[in-house]
Design a protein around this nucleic acid. Structure first.
Lengths: 218, 218, 218, 218
DNA sequence: GATGAATGAGCCTTCATTCAT
DNA sequence: GATGAATGAAGGCTCATTCAT
């Protein structure tokens, strides 16, 4: 499991570290359980078994199942945000480069694991009737979308003509979600590389001066 | 709920009609229950209560919960397929016209119900670990995608140059799914009209000779 | 099914006959169901299905399940009594001949069917906590035992010495029941002929002047 | 084993017990429940109530009802086997003494409890259609019968003439079962002493040199 | 008489949660 | 911190019984 490293070093907070490590271990087990059995068949016992820990410990650390799932979603959400913001930060100032970095980040092997895909899809599916997803991820998704929109706007300016940047950004975002869903629901799903290539075709259609189907035009 | 009205009077189909009508009634109640409470909180008793019937009757007609959900998905799948094939059949021979009809069909008020959207998203989310979705909808989804791809290929031919039709079709399909997901998961979701407009922006980017952001040209 | 013929001819009670025939048909189906599935898994629906009739008809004829089972036991009990009394009546006045007739009657192919054996054993097993068996069969069993005891007493008189006739009769009766149980519970049960031979060994031990292991000494 | 005390106060029953002790407690409660209500009316909740515990605990220790009943039968079967083999071991080498010990063991007050008798009869009755009894007790019963047959053969050798030892052993075994059944099904059943006396009459008839109706000679 | 849809009580089982050790 | 026995609410399912047709 690709556990996200806590920013606290063991030395700085020696007493707290084991506690957080346990939490991360249990959250990773939760993701894996959701992935294997689906949201509706994810039980506290199964999570504990997946983590190789005792039954009661899950409640000790998370009090309730609701809370465990909530923390899991928050964990995924933070991880996702750090992933794309980190990629953008590393990409320089060019809008096209940033856009490419942003989209490609979603298909990095650390993020785009079967377990994480399945967990995301499960949370999307359970949205109805429960505000959990909105509460935990709403602002992150908005932030992602807003940044995407800004980039689109910047590239439009280069073109001299404008395709609605809100809708363009939306297409890019939901296409990303869509190919994730594909990788979950299809009998013989395609690889992350093909998923990214699909996105590139889309970006190239919107921004032919900045992108070809192969990627950004330097 | 856009309940399926049985236009047939009892006289026209005297014996068998009641049985099927009940099944449809219970399936509609299932969709509504999934929409309101989510997949994992959908219980047989809740479905029965939603339909105003006793819970024993649900088992009488569907034997198991698994089967009820399976039949519900099949029902949605059939409805969806009939909706878009019907729209295509009514659209004439022009590829762009057919494409527009196909995409617009997904946002008709009969199909694009909050309940149905939620149910679809729930089924997508529950795919992990259970082959139910693939089993019931795999071939339908494939058929939809294949037809989309054919249309893209035909329009490419008009252009004289070719954007990968497989990936293009995929973008169109997952964008549709994506805006559906948006309408489910967003705090203040946009309307079906805005969703279709978003798709039009996408189609126009791929096929500028056939589409503007407002719809098919001429 | 070896239905016991009602003494009423169709001519004498034409209107009632169908009703009784249905009852017998359902009782035979009950016996068969108990035999195949066991008492605790015998359901009204299964009985109806076994009889090839509709579900509601069982209740129409027997009102309750309790009553159906009660009537079934009564039916078996009457059949059993008529069988052994008939055999004794046909056997002449000699005590040994009557005893042989009585014991052999229990292994006639009409009585000693797998279905009937299983049903009897089931009723015996369900005796605890419910007075059903005693109520329906107590007096019959007593009558059987009393007659057996009388025969033992008569044969003792021939011998000149007396083995306790009550206990002797009891041994003969429970041995019969015991080999019936054997035929039900054993992996590779023996045949009715072997069961009767076992009883003959027992009778010969008690009454060596009247019986050999092969049967009564004319 | 002494039946489960219903008189246990909450204080006398510690909240947590060793695994095996709880299992035995629940098995004893199962025997008692079968005895009181019959096999078909034995429910998990009733077993739990009889033990003074929550119904969830029964599933915690036995997973399924099927398994609980299976383990109960196994428990009875082991207890029974240990009882007669122990009695035989304590009886010396003489065949008649061993036979007496073996038969008398079946009527010891620890084994010949109303609850245990009822449970055995219930399991015999439920044999139809389910191989549970054969599976758990078949080999034990065979072992019992084989040993009985060996003893009969040895006593026959003393006599100089031979009554079929297989059938003789079978009579003794089923007579034991039969008087057990009597003690269950009769309105005014006789006592264990009378049951054993009945068996002695039978043994004396087969082996007059070794047994009188009062028991083994010399 | 006969059918089979409909009801609801009750059963087995699961599982989140508590708690003694 | 950690464990796992114990609890009880709730869910799926069965089935005796009722009843409209």
């Amino acid at each position: 499991m690709a556990a996200i490293e806590q920013t606290d070093t063991p030395e700085s907070q020696p007493r707290k570290m084991p506690r957080d490590a346990r939490r991360v271990q249990l959250i990773e087990a939760t993701i894996e359980t959701i992935a294997r059995f689906g949201y509706s068949r994810t039980t506290m016992s199964e999570v504990a078994r997946m983590a190789g820990l005792s039954h009661g410990l899950v409640n000790f650390h998370f009090q309730t199942k609701e809370n465990l799932l909530s923390e899991t979603l928050l964990y995924l959400s933070d991880e996702y945000r750090q992933n794309w913001t980190g990629a953008v930060d590393a990409a320089g100032v060019d809008a096209a480069e940033q856009l490419y970095a942003m989209l490609a980040a979603d298909f990095r092997p650390e993020i785009c694991t079967p377990g994480r895909l399945a967990a995301w899809c499960s949370f999307w599916g359970e949205t109805s009737g429960r505000p959990l997803y909105q509460e935990k991820c709403g602002s992150n998704d908005e932030q992602y979308n807003d940044y995407l929109e800004t980039l689109c706007r910047r590239m439009n300016a280069d073109h001299g003509y404008s395709v609605d940047p809100t809708r363009t950004a939306r297409v890019l975002r939901v296409t990303t979600e869509g190919v994730w869903l594909d990788m979950m629901t299809m009998q013989s799903p395609y690889e992350a590389a093909e998923a990214l290539a699909t996105l590139m075709v889309c970006v190239a259609a919107f921004f032919p001066r900045h992108f070809s189907a192969e990627g950004p035009l330097h």
